[in-house]
């Protein structure tokens, strides 16, 4: 192979990147975090996370519940970052992943103070709110009994002061709507905290 040909090939490849469809650029940088799509406990805000995490996969390897999965290149710059799909396997807050993170992307935090997200009940699909059955699965499953989820007039109510967003209620919820969501979903509202002014 001639050197010139090789350099031409390289230049073509690089300029090809610039002409790639506009949507690609947005998809490369777009955060995969959303409803029921969470970072492990103690994660720094999403603004910092992809920069801080070195994708070493140690949190994935130590997770005893296999809650943490690993993203691949289809998620752009978020490839290799840890990720929890709450409705599949929730986080049981054992904090083993936090102990092995070498970069401080996951920072040590006490269990009740963890804020992976906030559970939000969809009162239009929840069986208890709809009056279909006396379902209280989420109330029974919540690890912070009578704190994060309480029953008011036999309907579950979430307390923002105590909900850690672990997703155990989401995982247990018997209702699955057409879009794959549950009647109680975790919204990662704390992940969008701004760190830079």
């Amino acid at each position: 192979m001639k050197r010139r040909f090789f350099l031409q090939l390289l230049a073509t490849g690089l300029s090809g990147l610039a002409f790639s469809p506009r949507k690609t650029g947005a998809a490369i940088l777009k955060s995969p975090i959303g409803t029921n799509r969470l970072r492990p406990p103690g994660a720094v805000p999403e603004e910092l996370f992809p920069g801080k995490c070195i994708r070493c996969g140690r949190c994935v390897e130590v997770c005893p519940y296999r809650s943490i999965i690993m993203l691949d290149i289809r998620y752009g710059i978020h490839a290799g970052t840890p990720f929890i799909e709450a409705e599949n396997v929730p986080c049981y807050l054992c904090m083993k992943c936090v102990d092995v993170c070498p970069t401080g992307s996951l920072q040590r935090i006490r269990q009740p103070e963890t804020r992976m997200g906030l559970a939000i009940i969809n009162t239009f699909t929840c069986l208890a709110y709809e009056g279909i059955t006396l379902c209280r699965t989420c109330y029974d499953k919540c690890p912070f009994v009578e704190k994060a989820i309480r029953l008011e007039q036999l309907k579950p109510v979430i307390d923002e002061q105590h909900c850690t967003g672990c997703g155990i209620c989401t995982n247990a919820c018997p209702v699955t709507t057409a879009d794959g969501k549950k009647a109680v979903n975790i919204e990662p509202i704390y992940a969008s905290d701004k760190v830079t002014p």
């Binding site: 070195i54 994708r55 070493c56 996969g57 140690r58 390897e61 130590v62 092995v100 070498p102 970069t103």
Partner: peptide, 21 residues
């Protein structure tokens, strides 16, 4: 032991690859 040559943890002995760090 956890991880690989980006960051390797053997017990409480941790290695971090210099470039990634």
């Amino acid at each position: 032991v956890q991880g690989w040559y980006q960051s390797l943890g053997i017990g409480s002995l941790w290695f971090v690859s210099p470039l990634e760090g």
